[in-house]
Design a binder for these strands. Structure first.
Length: 522
DNA sequence: GTTAGGG
DNA sequence: CCCTAAC
């Protein structure tokens, strides 16, 4: 207990909540607000026509997407129509990159309502509802284990220091950096695995659902004999799955922006992959070339579309009700504090674990280049979740073992238990989000710096990719970050307020530790 | 299994 | 993030 601790936290997500629904334009139900945050995004992708359809731009597009949304503005109220231009380009540039930083946090306050709107359309139709709850003007708005939203007000000694004007810089667009495959350290295994010259990291997108987002092709100019020509895609915009955001009316606009930003980032960073539609039909075979798929054909309007889909691998308890399986979601809140989720609270992610609510819920597992596998915690049923409605209407299976496993097996030469990381495989880098930092700081403030297991249990109990060692390491880097000048800091900017709390908590607990030692010595 | 600290 | 000594 020390000054900085906030023992009594205030829940204030109730009465004055403002709901902002964001839906893709295809939705039948009209959302209160529609968003088009990618109106101007263009992605020029030069892909050899022989490249596999889904090989080509899974990552770059999302990377770009992610980068573009860095400057998320405000709602425009227009529908987010996706436009894709396909043009010919002689460049032989490999547009594909490696694994982008995958922001993979799963926040408790982001959850999925899973409202579905079955449609006949062969293309995207199912909408995903993202629920984001921001307490007060905080970015994170984490819930404590007592289920209350936390209001954070630093009340440390150096309270005179006002450092909350970080909103401007937090909008910084982090440039995409080409990185090596973590999963393939020291070897070009990945390149061998994938037939395309284009690198990719996802192997889980061959059997996704057609849902949520879609794109349209605005034009194409491809010569008849385009064997060796590249197809240039210019994606004007992507539609995003529905976002369901809950935020107090007293929250600031900046807070709203950040909240949306975080939700979108979460979606794009980890929750989605890109699917490709040709004439309304989903292209599943990643190994097909564009030529084979017809993308590089001359016919002008073959109906090429890119869709953003949820990852089909959702970690759910095997006992999950069917409604869960039908829900093309991957973020499910267990928080009772997340009001309005009564219809969906049956979606229990974890079979085991504590009954308490923890601030961050994670469902993904994350090793680069693989779609399955939990890191850390074991013994949970991991059921791949597939929505095959669009492309395989005859499939009535709610939970199916996707056929992608075939492909995956073809690509992964070793027999490994799907779900277990390759031995010696380095874990994917997962930068801590501000929200995660917030949760960490809060937990450390309460528990101290020497009880990382408790910190983990308290704040990251359901985030399986964050081990207590990770948290300890993160704290280490946070302390370091807080001590260096802002100019020297890299990555997603951590609000100064948080860093101040880090220093304060660190100082306090260091002092406590010293006292303890002194006592033990004497 | 956890903690702590260097790599 | 990884590795590992120390507990």
């Amino acid at each position: 207990m020390y000054q900085g601790q906030r023992e009594s936290l205030v829940a204030q997500v109730k009465p004055d909540e403002v709901e902002c629904k964001v839906k893709s334009a295809e939705s039948g139900t009209s959302p209160p607000v529609q968003v088009d945050f990618e109106d101007k995004m263009e992605i020029d992708m030069n892909i050899p026509a022989r490249a596999s359809p889904e090989n080509n731009n899974v990552k770059p597009s999302s990377s770009l997407f992610k980068n573009c949304i860095g400057g998320l503005g405000c709602f425009s109220g227009r529908s987010a129509e996706t436009k894709v231009e396909v043009t010919r380009d002689d460049d032989d540039e490999n547009a594909s990159g490696c694994s982008q930083d995958v922001q993979s946090y799963k926040q408790q306050h982001i959850s999925c309502n899973g409202v579905q709107k079955p449609r006949n359309s062969s293309s995207a139709s199912v909408l995903k509802h993202w629920r984001v709850t921001a307490a007060n003007s905080k970015v994170g708005g984490f819930f404590r284990t007592d289920g209350k939203a936390s209001t954070t007000k630093a009340t440390y000694n150096n309270s005179g220091k006002s450092s909350s004007n970080n909103q401007q810089k937090t909008q910084k667009v982090i440039p995409f950096k080409k990185r090596k495959f973590f999963a393939c350290d020291g070897a070009s295994v990945c390149d061998d695995l994938f037939t395309s010259p284009n690198k990719r990291t996802n192997d889980d997108n061959s059997c996704g659902s057609a849902s949520g987002t879609s794109s349209s092709v605005s034009g194409q100019h491809t010569p008849p004999n385009s064997r060796d020509c590249n197809v240039k895609f210019s994606i004007k915009s992507f539609k995003v799955p529905e976002l369901f955001i809950e935020i107090p009316a007293t929250a600031t606009v900046g807070s709203l922006k950040r909240t949306v930003m975080e939700a979108v980032t979460a979606i794009l960073g980890d929750g989605l992959h890109v699917g490709i539609l040709v004439q309304g039909k989903k292209v599943r075979d990643d190994n097909k070339t564009l030529l084979q798929t017809g993308i590089s054909q001359d016919d002008k309007h073959h109906g090429l579309g890119f869709i953003l889909e949820p990852r089909q691998h959702v970690q759910i308890a095997s006992s999950s009700p069917p409604s869960c399986a039908q829900t093309p979601s991957f973020l499910i809140s267990r928080s009772p504090a997340a009001g309005g989720l009564s219809r969906h609270t049956s979606l229990k992610l974890q079979a085991g674990g504590s009954s308490g609510v923890s601030p961050i819920v994670s469902t993904d597992m994350g090793f680069v280049g693989r779609s399955g596998g939990g890191s850390g915690d074991s013994g949970r049923a991991i059921v791949p979740l597939v929505d095959e409605r669009a492309s395989v209407p005859e499939s009535k299976a709610l939970v199916t073992v996707p056929s992608i496993r075939m492909e995956a097996m073809a690509m992964v030469p070793f027999h490994r238990k799907s779900g277990q990381p390759e031995l010696g495989q380095r874990r994917m880098r997962r930068p801590f989000s501000v929200s995660e930092v917030e949760a960490l700081v809060q937990a450390v403030e309460k528990l101290g710096t020497g009880r990382w297991r408790d910190v983990k249990l308290r704040a990251f109990d359901n985030v399986h990719h964050r081990t207590y060692v990770d948290l300890k390491d993160k704290w280490k880097t946070l302390v370091h970050t807080a001590r260096i000048s802002p100019q020297q800091r890299r990555g997603e900017p951590v609000p100064q307020e948080l860093l101040d709390r880090v220093l304060a908590a660190h100082a306090y607990w260091s002092q406590q530790q010293a006292k303890q030692q002194a006592k033990a010595t004497s």
